[in-house]
Design a protein around this nucleic acid. Structure first.
Lengths: 401, 401
DNA sequence: CTCCATTTCCAAAGCGCTTTGAATGAAAAA
DNA sequence: TTTTTCATTCAAAGCGCTTTGGAAATGGAG
């Protein structure tokens, strides 16, 4: 109907075509459509003077290998080799290249490098935002980040809202080859995600353990041993009604803790009372409610095993609210993941704990990931960390009553 | 000296060359050297049967666009267009392509896509592991992740150990074009990192505010207003000696809080006592020490403004240890970032707070990043969020004494 | 001085995708 | 019928890097 304005240079055809091209519909893959950052007509840096001074402060477009090579009067190949430490380049040349690269602040384009090498230089971490991204995770991240950072491997964090989304996220990550490896968390006794990752043939290290009959790289702490020791200790102190505030049913760590608890009880011939066991997420609120309810049982429990420091806070509150005193009327041993901002030693009374630094675990898992990627078989990567039992004021003899 | 074994097919020359090539030295860029995942002789998927059944479960090598195109009997161009929602492809074709892609679980290779589009589809978050990666950050991450996740933009977390490392990290990220944008945290009043990012011409959104004379995209909460209101409220209740447990000196949020505190005091003509102000990181331990010391002052302070819930925990402990009762002998209003595992409403006594969800802020910052990348000028991205004052049991009239 | 092994460097071919610039038919207009 | 116009589709050229397969220079042995 309407004639488009006709440029003197471009044909009508071209205009119509380009115009049509702009009108995009909803794409299948969101990311490919976000309208930012279309390929820019990148200004070549060839105008850079041969006698270089400082790294130009206002230089906008990032330098490419080609630019650096031209600048040095060498081929891309040689520069690439020099930078990557291949032996077939003259030491003097290498030095000159390295020095110039450093001075000009050259860094290879990450995407190009990844495409060319087939390695993405990243590890993935998929977290259910609602319950997994808590204080434990930030500590873990800090540890892992510390290790990965020195190797220039970056950590890609993806959050999801449900199990289904999590599974989809893994599939997506695998298909798009975004990461070289994955860290898998909070496994179930028989974890389907682990099986899937195995199927997908994407390397991963499990923080925790699972039983799926195939070799999996893992690092875990000895939850069973820790709880068994803590329980035994309380039993030694004369406690007979000991509450276990445990994690969610089905999670390996929770099951392991339960095993330790039951083992200690049965070793002393103390009967197990299901009313004294709670399974929940580790928040002070839920812990408070559970503890409150349990303190109303008769005979009243005299000791608590709290699954985390957050749990301990809730239990502590319930104890106080019941008019009891922690460490005298009621004992408590909490599991401490060692948060720098919440120190068991600085509580009042100081808190007896089963202690294992989750930050350290994160650091080590970073290391294990690196080993896995370097070719170490998953079957050879198993670490079970012992857990310290640190006795402080919150645990004492069962009170006579 | 020694003759290498000579293959029947390869020339001696080749062997020597290849042998030499293997002997790599230390490269300039670590990542390029990690010896995992060398280019694999990738088995083409062309053998895939035309009558497709399920997505083959054991299929190892990820499918490429080329494979998909061949499978469909179309060109890569058309398939790419169909998938990306360009209008010049027949609707029937598009449907067929989309359906097949979905069924085969095709996803474009992220690195290739990034290289081709120039967009990395990621945003960066650089954190000082020691103090920044605490509970605040995990909440923030959860919020941001929620928003970015739906757009398939991933979050790259880098941890550093010092300010110098942080600066280096930004430079590296910028030079290697790893991310499209950055989230900057915990700014100083005049933040050099922000200036650098501006120089580097890398888009970023600041969580907080800074004064560097150039337009910067930011989102902040009204720290000044929050503390001013909280202080005024305590003054109204008759408190005259009010402690402010603030963040580190120099951080914008801390300075803003101080301004609010001083404004409220001076509005009522209450003199400012420097002994009643503490600047520190927000951990229960430090808060405990500070609060303990301040409770020994005479006249004793009757109210505390705690910078975070962790701080509140420490103050609470100090109050109890001094034999005082929170909410009666001493009042407290804490700043609450709304941690799901530490609820002010469930404390005992319940905690009065200035409340602002940091998770929500994270989510919104994700949104702002997206807008920034979509072309919205940084100068138009400013959000100052009001902070709620929620009065509960921990704040009451100043006790007569 | 020639020959051959070494050392040092390079051109060009990918990596898997997007985008450009046309080509091919078919339908509409002349 | 002939020309014009769309609507579809495609081949090929990058994106910035690594790596292959030589080539050119250098030096030692014969």
């Amino acid at each position: 109907m309407e004639m488009p304005p006709i440029s003197l240079l471009a044909s009508k055809f071209e205009i119509a075509l380009n115009d049509a091209r702009r009108r995009k519909q909803e794409p299948l893959f969101k990311a490919a459509c976000v309208p930012y950052g279309r390929r820019t007509g990148r200004a070549r840096c060839s105008a850079l003077p041969t006698s270089v001074g400082h790294a130009v402060p206002g230089a906008n477009a990032a330098m490419r290998l080609k630019d650096l090579a031209e600048h040095l009067g060498l081929s891309q190949t040689t520069v690439s080799r020099a930078l990557n430490g291949y032996p077939e380049v003259n030491e003097a040349t290498r030095l000159r290249v390295a020095e110039t690269a450093a001075r000009l602040g050259y860094r290879p384009n990450a995407s190009a490098l990844r495409l060319a090498t087939g390695r993405s230089g990243a590890v993935g971490l998929v977290l259910r935002g609602a319950d997994e991204l808590g204080p434990h995770m930030s500590e873990f991240l800090a540890g892992m980040g510390g290790r990965m950072g020195t190797e220039e491997v970056d950590i890609i964090v993806t959050t999801v809202d449900s199990y289904a989304e999590e599974v989809a996220a893994y599939r997506r990550i695998a298909a798009s080859q975004k990461v070289d490896a994955i860290v898998l968390h909070s496994p179930a006794l028989r974890d389907e995600r682990a099986e899937m990752l195995l199927d997908l043939k994407i390397p991963f290290v499990l923080h925790g353990r699972t039983n799926i009959g195939k070799p999996v790289a893992w690092l875990d702490i000895d939850n069973t041993g820790a709880v068994e020791r803590a329980t035994s200790h309380l039993l030694d102190l004369g406690h007979r009604r000991i509450v276990l505030l445990n994690g969610l049913k089905g999670r390996t760590f929770a099951e392991h803790r339960e095993i330790g608890y039951l083992a200690a009880l049965s070793a002393r011939g103390v009967p197990f009372d299901p009313a004294l066991m709670g399974n929940s997420v580790f928040t002070d609120e839920v812990a408070f409610r559970l503890a409150q309810a349990m303190l109303e049982l008769r005979p009243r429990p005299t000791a608590f095993l709290a699954g985390s420091m957050m749990t301990a806070l809730g239990v502590f509150r319930a104890i106080r609210q019941a008019g009891l005193e922690l460490g005298r009327d009621v004992s408590m041993i909490a599991h401490d993941d060692v948060f720098p901002y919440l120190n068991a030693d600085n509580m009042y009374p100081t808190m007896s704990t089963t202690r294992s630094s989750i930050r350290q675990a994160g650091m080590r898992i970073g290391e294990l990931i690196l080993q896995l990627l370097a070719g170490k078989p998953a079957a050879d990567i198993h670490e079970l960390w012992p857990v310290e039992l640190v006795l402080r004021e919150s645990s004492g003899p069962a009170s006579e009553r």
